Simulated assay, not measured.
Amino acid sequence: MNAEKLAKLQAQVRIGGKGTPRRKAKKVSGKSSGDDRKLSAALQKLNVQPIPGVDEVNMFKDDGKVIHFSHPRVSAAPSANTFAIHGRSAEKELAELIPNIINQLGPDSMAALKKLAESFQAAQGENAGAAAGADDDEIPDLVESFEKADVEDKAEEKKEESA
């Protein structure tokens, strides 16, 4: 047998036992939605109904970060106190979302917001103090007028020349 033919046969994949046709590639099913089926079956048992018109969902964490869903699919079963939120999420800092979520903040989140504001003001104060201190070290205060200093420099030069 030819080496090229042998290499070609070895490259092909045999799926199955003896007597089955050789296939060049294993077929992979497009979706493995086993988890989705289980989830939707569990939600149907709870009689979950979709809630239309939800633009965004924000979940506030204890560490000051926010889980933000933009245009999610929301379903709820009030009798079971269950809410299901489907969609892409992003974990963002509270400072990024403040203008849009100020009306959604509860008492716990307001405390976190106050802490954030205080830390921001402290950082601004340190930066301003450092900048002012750096400026004071580099530029001396003006004590005399320039004209008097120029006259004194010329007088000193004449004394050195005559000496």
Rank of each mutant, 00 (worst) to 15 (best):
G34Y: 11
K114P: 00
A42C: 07
F146Y: 13
T82E: 13
F83E: 05
N103S: 14
P78I: 11
E93P: 00
V151K: 15
A149L: 15
A117N: 02
P99A: 13
R73E: 03
E147L: 07
M59Q: 10
D137V: 01
E161A: 14
S162I: 11
S33T: 03
F60G: 04
N100C: 08
G19F: 04
S32W: 03
L113G: 00
D55E: 12
G87F: 03
A3I: 11
E161Q: 08
L142I: 12
G30R: 06
V28N: 01
A76G: 03
S32I: 08
M110D: 00
K26S: 05
G133F: 03
V66P: 15
A41N: 09
Q10F: 14
M1W: 10
Q121Y: 03
H68A: 12
A128R: 05
L43R: 04
G30S: 04
R14E: 06
K154N: 10
R14F: 01
A11W: 05
R22W: 08
P21T: 08
E126R: 05
P140H: 12
K158D: 10
K38W: 14
E138I: 02
P107H: 09
H86W: 07
L113H: 01
A76Y: 02
G19E: 07
K27F: 07
D135S: 14
G53S: 09
P78H: 15
D36M: 11
V13I: 06
S162C: 07
D55Y: 02
K61Y: 14
P72R: 02
A77Q: 08
E144T: 15
A11T: 02
N127R: 06
E126H: 04
L116C: 01
D62G: 02
S79K: 13
A25C: 08
N127P: 00
R23G: 08
D35Y: 08
K92M: 13
K8D: 13
Q104W: 00
A130I: 05
I67N: 08
N81I: 05
S109T: 09
R37N: 06
M59W: 04
P140S: 11
N127I: 04
A84R: 03
E118Q: 03
R37V: 04
Q12A: 09
L94Y: 02
V57N: 06
A95T: 09
A132S: 14
H71G: 01
K61H: 13
L113M: 07
I98F: 06
E126N: 05
S75C: 00
E147Y: 11
K8P: 08
K45F: 10
K154D: 10
I15R: 09
A90S: 15
K38H: 10
E144M: 13
I102G: 01
K38S: 08
K45P: 05
E138T: 03
I139E: 11
D36Q: 14
E161Y: 12
A42W: 14
M59R: 09
D141M: 04
R23E: 13
A111K: 01
E126V: 04
G19D: 09
A3D: 13
G106V: 00
N2M: 10
A7Q: 12
G129Y: 12
D135C: 06
E126M: 04
P72G: 00
S119Y: 03
A155C: 00
F120W: 01
E91H: 15
L94M: 15
K26Q: 06
A132C: 06
